[in-house]
Amino acid sequence: MQAFRLLARYVGKFCAGGKDVSCAFVTGHEMPLAGWTWAACLWQGHVMPHDHDHPHAHLPSDPALRVKALETILTEKGLVDPAALDEIVDTYQNRIGPKNGASVVAKMWADPAFREEMLTDPMPRLKEMALYGRQGEHMVFVENTAEVHNLVVCTLCSCYPWPLLGIPPGWYKSDAYRARSVREPRKVLSEFGVTLSAGQKVRVWDSTAEVRYLVVPRRPAGAEGLSQEALADLVTRDSMIGTGLAREPGA
């Protein structure tokens, strides 16, 4: 074990460019690298710059193992109940997703009084409809028209209306989308295959606060007389972010 610790310490110094490795970021005390950290270091020291000043560097480098390790420690300390984790995952895998938002948009298309309510003061009604909750406490609906196409982004992190759309897709959280949708929204739209009508301006909403924006796409031609359920089938997740349009009926 002593030999192992020495090896770990040597590797730690090697990775830190010869400096003594400390985790002064939070604890202020010196602490040799040990356990699996040295293996992470062997791997990452040659692949990318790696920051040993942060506690997260004390977990395995493989992210799947890192999650597992953290869950194990937290469970042993009585801080996390794995059944609660299962419940959270099930909620966002199977129960809360873009169908919620699509049902609201379809109802806005079908019911002018409801549309007015959603555009002016949506929260009381959303609470009634059990479409309120974490990351959807302050909703604002922004409607696409012949003049304006709306697009939603969060440049600073990944803010997104969870109760209505679920957890965001990978691209929404990507550096490319966060960086470019504000500066060159039309190019980004073209990467999603979206072509705007002549004369439509683009309005990009950067979600910098706890207000969550949902785009109300334009109702496609030929959707008259469809039931709300059939209308909801035309409303895609991307159309409620602004990187898509509603589907044409029969398409």
């Binding site: 966002y92 895998q93 997703g97 440049t155 600073l156 679920g166 957890i167 965001p168 897709p169 990978g170 691209w171 990507s174 550096d175 490319a176 989308y177 966060r178 960086a179 470019r180 949708s181 504000v182 500066r183 980004v188 990467e191 999603f192 295959g193 950067d206 991307d238 990187t243």
Partner: peptide, 18 residues
């Protein structure tokens, strides 16, 4: 603080999974 940054490449709409 990424808004407007250059050098990130194209957005990949197929990176679609939750």
């Amino acid at each position: 603080d990424m808004g407007g940054r250059f050098g990130t490449g194209a957005v990949d709409p197929d990176d679609n999974a939750t």
